[in-house]
Write a protein that binds this DNA or RNA. Structure first.
Length: 703
DNA sequence: CATATTCTCTTTTTT
DNA sequence: AGAGAATATG
């Protein structure tokens, strides 16, 4: 029997899509059609009448993935998908809490704190309790709180044995109390609250457990402890869980993702029903050979090996540059050549381990006139001018929000300084009231601010969302402030863009209240720099590249200390995660892959000398094509000789030079100090690390 | 109270 | 190098 949904699937994919009503784990390698299987499964379940859209819960990690899933399902099924719950963990938790806010113990219009907001809330708490921020760093406290929430632990469940941990637990408790008082919830709180809601509320739990007959989870390897418990709670006796993931692509362990959930899931739910999707439809053979060889070095994995029906394809090109600039110019040349041969710029990606590395690359691209687009960095709803405008809006709908109050009480400056705010905070604390309430009974400039907000509230009653925001931007003085600022043009434009975003939101969303828009802003921070339509080279970190694919991929900065990053290279777990990251990077490429490293590069304002990444050595030589120094032609500049590094005051050594030591082996001179008999050099050795050596004693020889 | 200056800290990041 | 925060100065 032929079914158009299933015809184009391979046997494993088809088996996964048509699994009976039981839980199962799908181990889906990179490029094996993971999303396709997930969406086809949903379409198949509905089309064959096994479940109505109402009985489906599909969870992803990013908004992008959720949208993609919706689009694909809609393309396969000509029915309305309204009743289906498809979204991110946080989006779905938010939906649940908005519906059952009373049972969850939240105010109806509770606000969501993003990571920035949360950090300032923590700082504010520490300040109000007179806590030494040297000893209890705000970031650490935030990490502590989130760590516990993500493990499903409240302050009372935190183990506190010594003074330090007891204090942390108390801070956690006080922080939650502050949030409750102000009617706000941070990201992990959304999940924990939703979890507790269902956990404690039997009828509600039963309702959802009966309703969702199929729960499907994407990128299962990225779930943390709380998310896993969350899923278990939603699953009733008759619910089938369909988890799709790839342990080899787990790159978020550093923020709590637990690959162990996959093993746990297999034991608890799948009972051995595991389907491996190993046929890769993306990359040519050599690229997969390299990826497989690399990932096999990891000991902690479920085991899986990609293969392709395509040919070997081209070898992987490896380039060693003198320095970061040389590397960048190599990339530019290759990109231009590929582009001339017909590859669209947008089908090529430039990947790096950390955002800071993009600068040099951008500079070279800009100079060469190559269009490019950088992903990452500040996103729309995270910009300060946008956050200011949103804070005014939050104050309108939810005056108890002290965080919002503090953000804008003196922005634009209206003569309310730190001193005044402190007094206000004292008054509020005494009266057990919010800053807003205290402000309403105050006099002078604070009272003027309160009148301003009241005035805006009245003036915007009955206006549409976009009109309201427009009014707020003008009446608050934000617009004037940025108009007066000579560098404010961009910010002003962004504020206009916010009004447009609101208008668009009103058109698309079912619920276009101010509260809904604010949730939207917090949960979906917005595209990075939406500038579609233009053909541009894609620049991003390896993390940001997960889930994407390109004709040609450049992985740059393959040096020890950078990739693998030195922070992670010390322990086995960190190193395995770095290796998975490299695996993700390699498997982004369809046809052509470039790996480059530089002998030296500017880092934190100074030149650093590094060795080639160990990951390069872990790839089989047979698939690599070392590109020797480009043959200098008339129009290429002479190869940059390691720049006239400060000579070692006539000692015959210079920075950047390779030397050999009887005991430590070979290394590179990275610093120089003193002169004459006291002269010392700092040498970075391959195995022995970095050492200061006195030239008078150490027997060094040029290598 | 607002603005200029110095100091500090730099992995990855979604929600 | 460069941003953001803490701190000194007008």
């Amino acid at each position: 029997m032929s079914d158009p949904l299933l015809d184009s699937l391979n046997p494993e994919q088809r088996a996964a899509v048509t699994l009976p009503h039981e839980s199962a784990l799908i181990l889906a390698g990179a490029g094996s059609g993971k999303t396709r299987v997930l969406t086809t499964r949903i379409a198949w379940l509905i089309q064959t009448g096994r479940v109505s859209p109402h009985g489906i819960l599909a969870v992803t990690f990013t908004n992008k993935a959720a949208k993609e899933m919706m689009t694909r399902i809609a393309a396969m099924l000509p029915i309305n998908t309204r009743g289906m719950w498809v979204g991110t963990f946080h989006g779905l938790a938010n939906r649940l809490l908005r519906t059952h806010w009373r049972e969850a113990g939240l105010p109806q219009s509770f606000q969501i704190l993003d990571a920035q907001d949360q950090l300032s809330a923590v700082k504010r708490l520490l300040k109000s309790l007179n806590i030494d921020t040297e000893k209890y760093e705000p970031k650490k406290v935030q990490g502590y709180i989130n760590g516990h929430k993500e493990a499903g632990r409240r302050a009372r469940d935190a183990d506190a044995h010594d003074e330090y941990s007891m204090q942390l637990a108390e801070l956690y408790e006080a922080y939650d109390a502050q949030c409750q008082r102000e009617g706000v919830a941070d990201f992990p709180e959304l999940l924990l609250r939703a979890y507790e809601l269902l956990y404690r509320n039997e009828p509600l739990r039963q309702h959802y457990q009966t309703r969702f007959r199929h729960i499907l989870i994407d990128e299962f390897q990225d779930t943390n402890a709380l998310q896993y418990r969350w899923l278990k709670l939603f699953a009733g006796r008759d619910t089938a869980l369909f988890a799709v993931g790839d342990d080899d692509q787990s790159i978020y362990a550093f923020r709590g993702a637990n690959t162990g959930n996959m093993l746990e899931f297999e034991r608890e739910f799948a009972h051995g029903r595991v389907i491996k999707l190993e046929q890769n439809y993306r990359s040519h053979g050599n690229i997969l050979t390299a990826a497989n060889a690399l990932i096999e070095r990891n000991l902690h994995r479920l085991g899986k090996s990609l293969w392709t029906a395509d040919g070997e394809g081209e070898p992987i090109r490896v380039f060693e540059a003198f320095n970061d600039q040389d590397e960048a110019s190599f990339v530019v040349d290759e990109v231009k050549a590929l582009n001339r041969e017909g590859t669209a710029l947008s089908d090529m990606a430039l990947l790096y381990r950390s955002n800071a590395q993009s600068r040099v690359l951008e500079h070279a691209l800009f100079t060469a006139g190559v269009a490019y687009r950088v992903y990452g960095g500040l996103r729309f709803f995270e910009r300060q001018e946008i956050k200011h405008a949103l804070a005014y809006l939050r104050l309108l709908t939810h005056p108890e929000d002290d965080g919002a109050f503090l953000r804008v009480v003196n922005f634009p400056t209206r003569g309310v300084g730190a001193r005044t705010v402190e007094q206000l905070a004292d008054a509020a604390a005494h009266a057990g009231a919010s800053l807003w309430q205290a402000a309403c009974t105050a006099s002078g400039k604070v009272a003027a601010f309160a009148r301003l907000i009241e005035g805006i509230k009245q003036a915007t009653a009955g206006l549409t969302l976009a009109e309201t925001i427009d009014h707020v931007i003008e009446a608050s003085g934000l617009a004037d402030h940025y108009r007066a600022d000579k560098d404010g043009a961009d910010r002003l434009e962004n504020l206009n863009e916010l009004v447009n975003a609101a208008a668009l939101f009103s058109e698309e969303a079912e619920d276009d209240t101010l509260d809904a828009f604010l949730s939207h802003a917090a949960l979906e921070a917005g595209e990075h720099q939406a500038e579609p339509g233009r053909d541009a080279l894609q620049l991003m970190t390896v993390h940001a590249a997960k889930g994407l694919e390109f004709h040609a991929v450049f992985i740059t900065g393959l040096e020890e200390g950078l990739f693998p990053h030195e922070q992670s290279a010390h322990d086995e777990r960190g190193l395995e995660e770095e290796r998975r990251l490299m695996y993700v990077a390699i498997t982004r490429a369809r046809r052509r892959l470039y790996l480059s490293h530089a002998q030296s590069r500017m880092l934190h304002g100074q030149v650093r000398y590094g060795f080639a990444s160990r990951f390069l050595a872990e790839l089989p030589d047979a698939v690599l094509l070392p590109l020797n120094r480009r043959t200098a032609t008339r129009d290429t500049p002479a190869p940059p000789v390691p720049r006239a590094a400060p000579a070692g005051h006539g000692t015959g050594y210079r920075i950047g030079q390779c030397v050999a030591h009887a005991r430590f082996g070979t290394g590179i001179i990275i610093d120089f100090e003193g002169r004459g008999p006291d002269a010392r050099v700092q040498v970075k050795f391959g195995d022995a690390g970095t050492k200061w050596l006195a030239l008078a004693y150490a027997k060094l020889s040029p290598a």
